[in-house]
Nucleic acid binder design. Structure first.
Lengths: 148, 148
DNA sequence: GGTGAAACGTAGGCCGT
DNA sequence: ACGGCCTACGTTTCACC
């Protein structure tokens, strides 16, 4: 992975559907050489894949919150039960197992606050072993490289 | 936005570089009809763009932490100064302005714990108006739809 | 929404460095 | 080992039905 590869990855970050000839031109390479590099990055796993980026608002995901969750039980069964519930909940887009005063950090996306409240009471509130919930409502994201 | 559009978006979520003919086949449409729908989704802003997904480990981003930051000053100047510092820091991949006991939630990615410690002391520690820092180190992410 | 045809891009073989 | 050139093949993209 040299500077040229990084330049290629930067371009694919901005536009993942750029044509190979345009990409080659941007990084000052011939199309064939450029394609070989991209394919090598895909083969070796540096490139995991490509995905579309959609507008959260237009997808009914205009509201976002981060939620710290504390479990009263630290058994494997309790963790697996909670993780299963989160993986099934469509509002939960991220579920991180963290080290510290809480066990989990969630990113929850919904249409609005009332829909979030429903998730809070009906999904999180009904989970056994959940003994602490702290919500941080996102008011804005001055930087979000994972979304752009 | 009907069911067909959502089907198209789901396919583009899995593979953002799928060819139009393959996409058309997957959603049972002719290539031209499919392309028109995709272009309309792009034109109306439902589709924001396309991005490559890279392996964090292979990019020297194997370590991740979430950081709650409290500011001692709530003036516009203090906020803008902090946000500017975060937008410049390459380790900070997300900076969210939140409502609650803290002002900001960051997602920080680095190669390892020692590099994170350097960021913690040299970047966050030197910021004025920062009076509270709480780090949550990510041990795993059972669900992360924004990364896949 | 489907069809067809021209313009364009892809992908692999081959050669030079 | 890596970049550039060439070419058959597939894809995109448009006017038109």
């Amino acid at each position: 992975m040299d500077a040229l590869d990084q330049k290629i990855l930067r371009e694919l970050q901005c536009d993942g559907r750029i044509s190979n000839v345009a990409l080659a031109e941007r990084v000052s390479l011939s199309p064939s050489a450029c394609l070989r590099r991209v394919q090598e990055l895909e083969r070796t796993g540096v490139i995991r894949g490509y995905r579309v980026v959609t507008s959260p608002e237009r997808m009914g995901r205009g509201f976002a919150a981060y939620v710290l969750v504390g479990l009263s039980s630290h058994t494997k069964a309790a963790q697996e039960g909670f993780e299963r519930a989160m993986s099934v909940a469509p509002e939960v887009v991220e579920c991180h197992n963290i080290a510290g005063a809480f066990e989990y950090l969630l990113r929850v996306e919904s249409a609005d606050l009332s829909e979030y409240k429903r998730f809070h009471t009906e999904v999180l509130g009904t989970q056994s072993h959940v003994h602490a919930i702290t919500s941080y409502i996102v008011m804005g994201s001055p930087k979000d490289e994972r979304a752009t």
